[in-house]
Design a protein around this nucleic acid. Structure first.
Lengths: 155, 155
DNA sequence: TCCAATAAGTTTATTTTCTGGACGGACCAT
DNA sequence: ATGGTCCGTCCAGAAAATAAACTTATTGGA
């Protein structure tokens, strides 16, 4: 299996992971959700080489997760903004953060607190069922092949 | 920034990503949630080299996400089972799958359908607020530093 | 006894990715 | 002119990821 094959797998997780399944990409997305938009800001915050930043931003832009928008002319400068598709990744980022909050707490509590503007409370994300509204647990779910299934498929 | 530094960052996402932020690791976890437990089965399903499987299973075991359990003696053979910490990753996996279902559908519908045993329905995961129960959207959340915050922290 | 099969890795050599630094181009302020 | 900002690209060496072949331990059968 090669990296490029991943996006052609009949598996939604494999297809997603082909785009966002990379340490630096996930860190870039974290910063996007915290309002970071500029190349220099990503580079400074992450402290990794510019080559990687440029490469990952290009992938995310090509995939429509980020949009490159000019914020000034003379000289033209661009910033990277989350698209609707990118905003849809919030549950992914939040789920990862939440798992880290629970299992990698150093005793000082979560590094970041999040407030739900609608109700005004600090909250934890809860994964619920679209049909009954109850919390969904791994053990309460039964997976079966869908119409796009093929023998090697999964996810 | 080096890989090992990641787990020492005051950021829950960075700490999590140090463990699970890798294509193959996420694919292995996908298979775990589908009931795959044995080395050979992972290797066969993923079609990647045994070195990677061995390495990733070791990391996940060391981190307590998977537990290595003997299922026979003479010769000793082990299988890898999700621990409670591992089961807690279900929202992460489900969020990624859900994003792929939405944005990388090839027109044939989702490769895998999931049924919530509690209510009997096929469902989509919905990220909700632990306090008010409503769906949480990226734009409705305000982040601020927590007690464990330090200047370079985020997430 | 000898050979094949099974399961779970290791070893070796190659390929890919990442880093750190320098460089470029377009503009602005002093 | 000189330095500063912003957004990259290019390069060579270092680090990591990867595939293919090999190892170990055991069972079962010819």
């Amino acid at each position: 299996m090669k990296w490029d094959d991943l996006s052609r797998e009949p598996c939604s997780l494999a297809r997603s992971v082909a785009v966002i399944g990379d340490r630096w990409t996930l860190l870039i997305l974290r910063d996007c959700f915290l309002g970071v938009r500029r190349f220099e800001a990503f580079q400074e915050r992450l402290g990794i080489s510019r080559t990687i930043i440029a490469d990952r931003l290009k992938v995310l832009t090509d995939e429509g997760v980020l949009a490159k928008v000019a914020y000034q002319d003379r000289p033209v400068r661009h910033e990277y903004r989350l698209t609707e598709k990118g905003l849809d990744l919030y549950p992914v980022v939040l789920a990862i953060v939440s798992w880290g909050d629970r299992h990698y707490d150093d005793g000082r509590g979560p590094p970041i607190l999040r407030r739900h503007k609608a109700c005004g409370c600090d909250f934890q994300p809860v994964m619920t069922c679209s049909e009954c509204g109850d919390e969904v647990e791994a053990r309460a779910v039964e997976a079966r092949p869908g119409s796009a299934f093929s023998p090697s498929a999964a996810g």
